[in-house]
């Protein structure tokens, strides 16, 4: 009994280790980063602008070139690391609230979100390093979604310039994967292959189940028949025995 429990306990411990180990590996990243707080300001004197963050965070390097602040490996508290962020602000002070880039589903599909508040009516330019692929940009200025050219613009190198921001700004980007084209005409069986496969699986399962059911019924029928024969035989013997 003791051995059995030991074996089971070992297996449970092994499973827990398998579950927890990757988490431990994830947290074991040593980085040599510079800390900053939400009170720190990154000024752009030539453009009369400044940049600050809504939360504390870290970066590997931060440099001011051509009036653009470039942050490498920026990470705000509770947010992911951003490989590179380039920011420019003219006649305005901006506070970066949140950002994210995501790479989900299928290879090639990417998206990004960037959110900030602004004081002063000026111009802000951002490049958060989203890939150059066909995509869709949405910009929320205050409470209103604005179309491209209506207070904001995006250049071919995925740099977004906002010129009409008064309070909060949120920028969304959704990149379409190259392979995704729902309108492309494909043969019916390719376009609906999963539904066809499901229908086929369902049909096969039902046919198989019916076959099993029939076989089981036949077997139980034979058993019942055999039992009836045996009972009749036994009764006949009993009757014969009594008679003799």
């Amino acid at each position: 009994m003791g051995n059995r429990n030991l074996t089971l306990d070992c297996m449970y411990v092994a499973l827990v280790i398998v579950l927890v180990l990757p988490s431990a590996c994830l947290t074991a990243q040593a980085q040599s980063d510079v800390n900053f707080t939400s009170k720190d300001t990154f000024a752009i004197p030539a453009s009369n602008g400044s940049i600050s963050f809504a939360a504390n965070g870290t970066y590997t390097t931060a440099s001011l070139d051509n009036d653009f602040w470039t942050f490498v490996n920026l990470q705000l508290d509770n947010l992911q690391r951003l490989k590179k962020l380039e920011v420019f602000a003219q006649n305005s002070n901006i506070t970066i609230l949140a950002y994210t880039t995501f790479d989900t589903r299928f290879r090639g599909f990417r998206g990004a979100l960037f959110s900030y508040t602004v004081e002063g009516q000026g111009k802000q330019t951002f490049n958060i390093g989203v890939p150059l692929e066909p995509g869709e940009w949405s910009v929320l200025l205050g409470d209103e979604f604005k179309g491209q050219g209506d207070g904001w613009n995006v250049s071919p190198d995925a740099t977004v310039t906002v010129t009409d921001a008064k309070s909060n700004v949120t920028i969304w980007y959704f990149g379409f994967p190259e392979s995704f084209n729902p309108d492309a005409s494909q043969p019916f069986y390719v376009e609906h292959s999963i539904a066809i496969a499901t229908a086929t699986a369902l049909a096969i399962t039902i046919i198989f189940a019916l076959a099993v059911k029939r076989k089981t019924q036949n077997a139980s029928g034979k058993n019942t028949l055999a039992t009836t024969h045996m009972r009749m035989h036994w009764r006949r013997n009993q009757a014969g025995g009594t008679r003799s």
């Binding site: 579950l19 990757p22 994830l26 947010l79 992911q80 790479d103």
Partner: peptide, 16 residues
Amino acid sequence: LLLGPFNTPLWAPLGP
């Protein structure tokens, strides 16, 4: 939780 690749930037609050 067990299969990589890890540290792929995803939706930020989810972590890597």
